[in-house]
């Protein structure tokens, strides 16, 4: 039936066959690993594996550090996005590129750079240590810094676009009604960009939750201290495959949950 329809020139099936095959190949590339993971899963022991101390510690660390990184990204990233979207001075293009750099930079390189800058002998890490005694590398704070470094650009991109597209008349109207700049931002600008901010925060959190390279390089993989879920999966692959698969499934579930929340915004399913 369907092939006959194609011959009659049904517009839905009029894609070149070569493109369709390549697209299907791409779908397989994404689907097969998930299938592999599901097939390899020790479904009977899953409960026991996921309630082990290693998993609990890693999950707790991952949750804490990724949420902290998301909060820091929000507090610093929203003003930064606002600045990039609204500032008119020269050099703002350079600032923008700098902010987007972590998106294309290999996370390991980012982690190494953080280590050189914020390590105990680093440009900034030295003074920080001598003033406060705080050592960032190989601590939970280091995990948060690494997560923020890698994930904040997602928030900045999302929110910057929203600031740029915002109808400026709303802010003008608020100002003409006597609202101070801060009131305008808090009561008009921020609520109007809220949908973009929310999706930016979710993306940032997901990226931080899955962060591996920069965290490993800057904060190491110390169980119970800096070993987040992705790091624990990597270590478990060497020692306890079932545990690694179980933790991987856990992360797949989390990733799917985020995609479902974002679905309406990104695919506009109505």
């Amino acid at each position: 039936m369907s092939s006959r329809r194609t011959e009659r020139g049904n517009t839905r099936s009029s894609l070149p066959i070569g493109l369709v095959l390549l697209a299907l190949l791409a779908v397989l590339l994404f689907a097969v690993p998930i299938v592999g993971l599901v097939l390899a899963a020790p479904w009977g022991d899953l409960g026991g594996l996921l309630s082990s101390e290693t998993v609990k510690d890693a999950l707790r660390l991952s949750m804490f550090s990724s949420i902290a990184a998301t909060v820091v990204s929000g507090v610093l990233g929203v003003p930064l996005a606002w600045l990039i979207a609204r500032a008119r001075f020269r050099g703002i293009a350079f600032v923008r590129s700098l902010v987007l750099l972590p998106l294309v930079l290999p996370p390991v390189v980012g982690g190494a750079a953080l280590l050189f800058a914020l390590g105990r002998n680093g440009v900034l890490g030295g003074p920080i240590f001598s003033f406060s005694g705080l050592v960032l590398p190989f601590s939970i704070w280091g995990v948060i810094v690494a997560n923020t470094f890698v994930a904040m650009p997602f928030l900045v991109i999302s929110v910057e676009g929203a600031f740029r597209n915002l109808d400026r008349r709303f802010e003008g109207a608020a100002a003409s009604l006597g609202a101070s700049r801060w009131t305008v931002f808090r009561r008009v600008t921020l609520p109007l960009i809220w949908p973009s901010l929310l999706s930016g925060l979710l993306l940032t959190w997901a990226r931080a939750f899955g962060e591996f390279g920069a965290t490993l390089t800057f904060a190491g993989s110390l169980p119970g201290r800096t070993q987040t879920l992705p790091l624990a999966v990597f270590v478990a692959l060497e020692s306890d495959r079932d545990l690694a698969v179980a933790m991987s499934l856990l992360m797949v579930a989390v990733a799917l949950a985020v995609l479902i929340v974002l679905r309406d915004r990104w695919w506009g399913t109505s």
Binding site: D167, R169, S176
Partner: peptide
């Protein structure tokens, strides 16, 4: 004098009511 200290009532084109 910045807009917030002018005390001028403006009915904007298409009204620009705060949608939220």
């Amino acid at each position: 004098v910045p807009p917030e200290r002018r005390n001028i009532g403006v009915v904007f084109q298409d009204y620009a009511l705060f949608p939220h």
